[in-house]
Design a protein around this nucleic acid. Structure first.
Lengths: 292, 292
DNA sequence: TCTATTCATGAAAATAATTTTCCTATATTA
DNA sequence: TAATATAGGAAAATTATTTTCATGAATAGA
């Protein structure tokens, strides 16, 4: 906790009634305070602006604006997660004020990325990258939210000239999987690891002789068991319906690592293609008279 | 370097003479700026206070004090964690060992989420949520990477029964935009804020009388200027082609906040629909013999 | 090349925010 | 109980910020 908030918390007992109201309001959501005027804050606390100015002077600030700037600087260091723990998932419920939602979401997403990174098995990740780099063709499978992740990887791979498909349609996924061969890669994404359509597609791909990679939430699941190289994103403890938001961020995080790993491995091959795809989009647009 | 300073540094060329003086003064010692009044800063730059206020507005801040608070928050992280984990953006180059890539990616993504959160304007976010909650119909626009983000929001909105479309085809986007009416919402996503197809679609939507929301990387852009409610994700300093990875994570972060805000606002309406959509997917699967 | 128009800019007016002053009510101590 | 100290608010004063308006420079069009 930042020095200012700490001082407020611990000095509370010494403060007078009105000052305490103020201190409590500030502690309740410091992030909001920095975007408030003195009048607004005064009203919310049921006190007068004069009291606030005096209070800031007591704390040795030059005034209220000075206090705000210093406070903003301090709370920026923290994650927004209460008690600075760094890794706690927050649940979000009805009627929460927006500031709480924002803080909770930040805490969740940061925790999710951290947890996912710390769970990574580098060797396994490297072998996934190697397999992908050598792939003649790559198939992506995923339904609903996971289809977004699959699409994202698809877009990236296309840009470096990897022969890749990512059908959203489960029948097409199966059809595509049937036509894979040895040397091809099937990459399946699923939050639960139990999505039947995705499992079917990956099974089919394995039967066709393709190497299989799964990306699921951490823990044992049918999809992970099935895959040659199972990769994991962190699973979220609270409120399952909420889980897929943080999980998707974590999965994209892994996708980014995979992609960057691929580019880094085959720099010479891939970077020129990446440049070219970028330039071509630019070029086409300029012809039409638009901008970047 | 923080997104604000980065935007200043890189947008300098687009600025006018006086604005450039100002930008240079801010870049010279951002830490001092946050403790200055607008008049003092104006004098030091040899310009008028009016120019400063205008400049802040161009950067989509509410005014000079708002700029100061956001800047204070940002420079707080950057000097807090020098060159390592924490909050500085890392570039990724050829032949980096995987462990370095992983660390850099984590640092980038964490920084991106933090920066984006600190740049958020809660009031603006709230008005976006309000507008979305009341919308008769919502149109999503976005090309390439941004289309992924648009699709993601689309999937979420559909699940809570919001009438929403997210065509990937730019002609369909325009067609759809033309049929919008007052009370509808158009939501455009673009990393650069200059994607012509997306700008066209949003302009068209505005002409049709729809409320317009943009989600772009931080800085002044055509799309942000066009929108009634411009929202921003943090922009990434290093290696331009790398920017869209972190930016996409940041944009999804904002999508999650918007969605959660909507659900929280209209808990009673939306939660049952969310439950129902979940149960229906389950039900359908069990009939076929699969699992969750 | 000249004119019209747009755009950048500063001066000053208007507005908004903050701080200070002054006053009252309450509590405290002799 | 009276004297005094003090917290706290109302309102005035001050200060900061924003807006408006006028001007001159630059650019585009004729």
């Amino acid at each position: 906790m930042s020095p200012i908030l700490y001082a407020l918390e611990h000095g509370k007992s010494k403060l007078s009634q009105m000052e305490r109201k103020l201190a409590e309001r500030i502690l309740a959501s410091p992030g909001e305070i920095v975007h408030m005027g003195i009048t607004e804050l005064a009203e919310q606390c049921g006190i007068s602006p004069a009291t606030i100015t005096r209070f800031c002077k007591v704390l040795h600030f030059k005034g209220f604006p000075d206090f705000k700037v210093k406070l903003a600087a301090e709370i920026a260091h923290s994650d927004g997660s209460p008690e600075g723990s760094g890794s706690s998932y927050q649940d979000i419920v009805a009627g929460n004020p927006l500031s709480v939602i924002v803080e909770a979401m930040q805490a969740n997403h940061l925790a999710s990325i951290r947890d996912t990174t710390s769970l990574l098995d580098l060797e396994r990740l490297q072998s996934a990258i190697d397999v992908l780099c050598r792939a003649r063709r790559v198939d992506m499978y995923g339904m609903a939210t996971s289809s977004i992740v699959a699409q994202d990887f698809y877009q990236k791979l296309i840009r470096i000239g990897v022969n890749c498909t990512a059908f959203a349609d489960s029948h097409m996924q199966i059809t595509s999987a049937s036509s894979l061969q040895e040397g091809d890669v099937a990459f399946a994404v699923s939050y639960s690891g139990e999505t039947p359509e995705t499992i079917d597609a990956l099974s089919c791909a394995a039967a066709s002789g393709a190497a299989t990679i799964s990306l699921t939430s951490y823990g044992s699941s049918s999809l992970a068991t099935l895959a040659d190289i199972p990769l994991f994103s962190s699973s979220l403890e609270q409120g399952m319906r909420r889980g897929d938001m943080a999980s998707r961020i974590a999965q994209l995080h892994i996708i980014d690592i995979l992609f960057t790993g691929m580019v880094s491995t085959r720099f010479g091959d891939f970077i020129p293609k990446l440049e070219q795809s970028y330039l071509n989009v630019q070029h086409y647009r300029h012809k039409r008279g638009g901008q970047s």
